[in-house]
């Protein structure tokens, strides 16, 4: 047997358990739903299921509503760089040799541990414009500097946003400028992400930065920033790449839980993301063909992002 054939067989043996499960539970269903996106499959069976070509796609892409929800989805992802930078900063802080690291790490990770329905309900209470502690602090601050008339943002009840996006169509409306439901959800997300999974990934990766490298750089008398820029950052590149790729994938599919628990996609549809839209189409209207088509469009978008990412990221990543 040739060596390459042997390696291939060994590799397949290693791969087999995962590959089998992957094919059955992921790849199979994915192919199935891709096929379904070209049909009028409807659980309510109003008509016999048949292939309808590109109809679903044309209908989705020419629909103003789809683009509104698309914009919502992208909006939620705008804070991703802040979240990533934050988690890197926290990881760097936690990578120093100081006392109480265990305690800090655990405390900072708590938001990720407690994430879930209960926390979202809690945030809902925190954001209450009249009774919530957040506005209590904001209004208290303005009172203190003598601006009694300032009232806090309406948070989850408001359609306003920092990009002044209109509500009914994709447009800019000055009156919509302000803090609203979208910012509320973003702030909650950023709060949870500083000490979250990304921080852990960075921390683990920082541990893999060879000490010889940092020591050598320190001997050269490199400053902290230089050390970070020239030694640490390149070493972290694969991790950063991974985090960005996963962030885009997660972000494009995100916003579902928040919409379900906190806002039901409102007010006026401003927190309805594509994932929530898919859920509604599939599980409240049973239009599975249509929902699959939205997913496929979403998939193509994510894929495009990722390919760009890959091309760009690969420059810094050494395999």
């Amino acid at each position: 047997m040739k060596k390459s054939t042997k390696t291939t067989l060994i590799a397949l043996a290693f791969l087999l358990p995962n590959l089998l499960g992957f094919m059955v539970f992921t790849f199979g269903p994915v192919v199935f739903s891709m096929g379904a996106s070209f049909t009028n499959w409807d659980l309510q069976g109003r008509e016999p299921t048949r292939f309808i070509g590109l109809d679903n796609f044309v209908n989705i892409l020419t629909d103003n509503q789809f683009w509104l929800f698309f914009v919502n989805t992208i909006f939620f992802m705008l804070a991703m760089p802040i979240a990533i930078a934050g988690s890197l900063a926290v990881a760097l802080l936690l990578n120093s040799k100081i006392r109480g690291l265990d305690a800090y790490r655990t405390l900072l990770y708590l938001p990720s541990v407690t994430a879930g329905v209960a926390t979202m309900l809690l945030w809902k209470a925190l954001y209450n414009p009249d009774f919530g502690p957040i506005n209590f602090i904001i209004e208290g601050f303005f009172d203190w500097i003598g601006m009694d008339s300032v009232t806090g943002p309406k948070w989850l009840l408001s359609t306003q946003n920092l990009l002044a996006l209109g509500v009914e169509q994709v447009s800019i409306v000055a009156a919509q400028f302000g803090l609203g439901a979208r910012e509320a959800i973003i702030i909650m997300g950023v709060w949870g992400s500083f000490g979250g999974g990304n921080m852990i990934l960075y921390l683990a990766a920082l541990g893999n930065v060879p000490q010889e490298l940092t020591e050598a750089a320190e001997l050269d008398g490199a400053g902290r920033w230089k050390l970070f820029r020239n030694v640490t950052w390149p070493q972290l590149a694969p991790t950063t790449f991974f985090i960005v790729v996963m962030g885009v994938i997660g972000g494009m599919q995100g916003g579902f839980e928040q919409a379900r628990v906190m806002t039901q996609g409102g007010p006026a549809g401003t927190t309805t993301t594509l994932a929530y839209y898919i859920y509604n189409k599939a599980f409240t209207e049973y239009q599975l063909g249509f929902a699959s088509a939205i997913s496929l469009i979403l998939f193509v978008m994510i894929l495009t992002f990722t390919i760009i990412n890959w091309k760009f990221g690969n420059k810094e990543v050494n395999y």
Binding site: L121, K124, A125, N128, P129, D130, F131, G132, K154, L156, L157
Partner: peptide
């Protein structure tokens, strides 16, 4: 809705 939110959510 904003006056109500405190009560309905909890």
């Amino acid at each position: 809705p904003q006056e109500e939110a405190a009560l309905t959510s909890q």
